[in-house]
């Protein structure tokens, strides 16, 4: 196992992503931050807190569970649903989806489907902490914390204080494959 990002790296990456989001969208006006549970959810909270800090306006992050929209439901035993909590109407807003690791792009496809049933955002942008490549769909991230070239057999693990009860950390582990 090798550690590729520690707590400081993660914090810096999130600060940069926050500024990039604000730069791209002028300010926080009309921006809705939605994290994909469980870790994207937590990252979304942190980004929202940073935006509030920088802009001085209160921003609330929400969460969007995509389980029911996944294309691999039939390949596994039924999974428990996670929290969906969309704080405001998303019609004509800019939605920034937040996830921890971007790989195949299938989770994001499911998220786009889920979003389209909640309303019609003006634009959807994607922020991820780690982009490890191996895309299976034509999807790319707008804001990337770190590009991490990996082999398919490796596993990228993101651990966060709130969800994993350890220090913030991104590591690469040798997979069983």
């Amino acid at each position: 196992m090798s550690i590729v990002m520690d707590a400081t790296d993660i914090s810096r990456a999130l600060t940069r992503i926050t500024h990039e989001i604000l730069e791209r969208n002028r300010d926080a006006e009309g921006v809705v931050i939605l994290g994909i549970p469980t870790r994207g959810d937590e990252l979304a909270q942190r980004i929202a807190a940073k935006i509030t800090e920088v802009e001085g306006t209160e921003i609330r992050a929400g969460s969007l569970d995509v389980t029911l929209y996944r294309d691999d439901l039939r390949l596994k035993a039924p999974r428990a649903l996670l929290k969906t909590d969309v704080p405001e109407d998303i019609d004509d807003r800019v939605v920034v989806l937040v996830d921890d690791v971007l790989m195949s792009g299938r989770t994001i496809r499911a998220a786009l489907d889920a979003l389209s049933e909640l309303g019609r955002p003006r634009a959807v942008q994607l922020a991820v902490l780690v982009d490890r490549g191996h895309r299976e769909l034509p999807i790319r991230a707008d804001f990337v914390g770190k590009n991490l070239p990996t082999s398919k057999s490796e596993r990228v693990r993101v651990r966060l204080r709130e969800t994993d009860d350890t220090e913030d950390q991104v590591s690469i582990e040798e997979g069983a494959a």
Binding site: D65, L68, Y69, L73, A80, D113, E117, L118, G119
Partner: peptide, 18 residues
């Protein structure tokens, strides 16, 4: 699970593709 699915009834489009 039902608690999460209850939210679907409040949406404009009350449908999931599952």
């Amino acid at each position: 699970t039902a608690e999460e699915l209850l939210g679907v009834a409040k949406r404009p489009i009350k449908k999931l593709p599952t």
